[in-house]
């Protein structure tokens, strides 16, 4: 059961019960994320100002892993540029998919999700918010078009 307690750390359970930035943002870029495997849906709101993520929030239903991941992600993204957000996506993705315990970038609070790598069936849960963010940020920088 040690892998299980590694996955469901207290921090993750807390974010599941009381997710941070769990709200809509009026006028922000809105991006839908959907995991057809489990039916989970997530709406991400990203408000950019001067090339920087000024505010980011999410709504939707999902498992503890997907909610905690979205909650922690929104905390981590504030103040980052689109490029920095994309770089963080890559680092996070490497952390949850790498099949060895080699050195990965220190991702601070996000590293509580590293245990997901032991649960291949749950990687999609942890990455749903991140893929949604990548799409939201891409549309923000590539062309000023709302994805709604």
């Amino acid at each position: 059961m040690s892998e299980l307690s590694e996955l469901y750390q207290e921090v993750i359970l807390d974010h599941n019960r009381r997710p941070h930035n769990f709200r809509a943002i009026e006028g922000a870029t809105k991006q839908e994320g959907y995991n057809p495997l489990c039916g989970d849906r997530l709406t991400l709101y990203v408000a950019m100002e001067g090339g920087v993520i000024k505010d980011v929030a999410f709504q939707g239903s999902g498992c503890a892993i997907s909610k905690a991941s979205a909650s922690l992600m929104t905390d981590a993204l504030k103040g980052k540029t689109a490029d920095e957000a994309r770089a963080l996506f890559d680092q996070f993705h490497a952390m949850i998919t790498s099949d060895h315990d080699g050195p990965t970038a220190d991702l601070g609070k996000l590293s509580v999700l590293a245990g997901v790598r032991e649960f291949p069936t749950r990687i999609k849960c942890a990455s749903l918010a991140w893929h949604t963010m990548k799409a939201a940020v891409a549309s923000e920088t590539d062309a000023p078009v709302s994805t709604e």
Partner: peptide
């Protein structure tokens, strides 16, 4: 969430 239950 059912997914969490499934893993446990």
């Amino acid at each position: 969430h059912p997914h969490d239950a499934g893993t446990i």
